[in-house]
Computed example of a mutant assay.
Amino acid sequence: MAPALHISIPNASVATPAEGKPYTVYHIVLQLPLRKHEIRKRYTDFTTLHTELQSQTGSPPPAPLPAKSWIRKTVNNDSLTEDRRQALEKYVKAILEDNDPKWRSSSAWRAFLNLPSGTSTLHSNGSLSPTSRRRGSAGITDPNDWLEAHRDLKSHINAARQQLKSRDSAQSAQNQHALSADAKASLVRAAANIEQLDSGLRSLTSKQGNEAGWGKRLGDGEIRRRRDLVGAARKEVEGLEAVLRSAAPARSNQTSAPSASAAAAPEAKADLFRGASKPSGRVLGGPLKETERTRELDNSGVLQLQQQVMREQDEDVMSLGKTVSRLKDMGIMINEELELQNEMLGILDQDVERHQGKLDVAKKRIGKIS
């Protein structure tokens, strides 16, 4: 099952382009269980979305779009900006929480929020709704959509594999917990894609699918090939889930028990291909032996700890980015100084050549006198 999506517009700002007049942008925050993403849209983007939603669905969204003001401007009017921000937030939340999923299932809505094909949004009663009309209980029946979903599936599997590989080389238990949670989320998305792909193939070969003309788009050989792709992906996901359930080697225990970590590595690699039985008890997604920091935490506490670690990592990345920017500025200044020194050396070289010519003339004259 794909992760649920929550949306809000907490603030707005004024953008000043190099050419043109300043304008107001609204910060749209998309909140997932372990990640937060922000996009910025102008009021004209909302009006375009509103027009496309009506064109694609045949009916206006459940909440009205705030009217455009021809006299006042949001750039220099804070109260108008705040009123429009609240109205726009109510507008997008109404689309997200309405019982009818036709607006949030449209391509205009997904393109507006830059949503991937596997993202789901919430009904008003808390249940999940698919992002594509063709991805319902019958699965993905369109051949092109099926291939697109399969590419998404492979990307999720590759992401989980890389995250598990990074988990094994992590230097601390906190990083191992965070990478295990990311790998688990990727595997959950991959499993949801597998179910959609498998359901779509079953619909293509069913009696109702043949009567609807779905099965006529693909031959029997192509359907068998796609079934093999789904089966291979399912085995990969099961193997990666087995590796996820295995204990990641803790760096603090390597000196005291090197033989145990060395023995666990080949077993984890073997589990990737043969699978493993589901363990009993609570699974946090990290090492089986908990640390002092996570021992007293429940699942919610571990999730908060992971979010805190990710925020710290984001701050470190921002600090590193500032350092790199300063180094870049220093490199530009050094390059400019070197160019200036090269010009001065060129002038000096010309002066030396000029004086050398004068010395040669003086030597000839002295030779004639002597």
Rank of each mutant, 00 (worst) to 15 (best):
N175P: 08
N253T: 07
G215H: 13
E211F: 10
L244K: 02
S172D: 09
S256L: 03
G209H: 02
S172K: 03
P279W: 09
A233W: 01
A173I: 08
S186Y: 04
T205S: 07
A264R: 00
S256C: 03
K278L: 11
G285N: 12
L179G: 11
A192V: 07
S199R: 15
K184F: 09
D271P: 01
S280L: 05
G209N: 02
D220P: 10
A185V: 07
E211C: 02
Q174M: 09
V188M: 14
L240H: 05
P258M: 01
Q171D: 12
S256T: 06
R202I: 13
P279S: 10
L218A: 10
Q176G: 07
K216A: 13
A264D: 00
S169A: 11
A232T: 08
I223W: 01
R234M: 05
A250R: 00
S259H: 09
P258D: 01
A192Y: 12
S172R: 02
L187Y: 11
S186N: 12
V237N: 04
E236Y: 09
S169I: 12
Q208D: 12
Q171H: 09
S206Y: 03
A270W: 14
I223R: 10
P266L: 08
A248L: 01
A257T: 00
R234D: 04
A190L: 11
L179I: 13
K184L: 13
A192W: 15
D271R: 07
S259T: 13
R226Y: 15
K235Y: 03
K269T: 11
A192L: 09
A260P: 05
L201V: 02
K269V: 13
S252V: 01
Q208S: 12
P249L: 00
A170P: 08
G213M: 01
D198V: 06
G209F: 02
R234W: 04
A276Q: 04
V230E: 00
P279H: 12
A170Y: 02
V188A: 15
L272Y: 08
A190M: 14
W214S: 01
E267L: 13
L272E: 15
S246L: 12
A265T: 14
S259F: 06
L218H: 14
R227T: 15
L187K: 04
A260D: 09
L197Y: 10
T255M: 03
G231R: 04
V243S: 10
D271M: 07
G231P: 00
F273N: 12
R225L: 14
A270S: 09
A183C: 14
A262K: 04
A260S: 13
A247N: 08
R226A: 09
K184M: 12
E236I: 06
P279M: 04
E222I: 04
A178C: 05
V283Q: 14
S186V: 06
S280M: 06
Q208N: 05
A263W: 00
E222Y: 07
R226W: 15
A242R: 01
G219H: 14
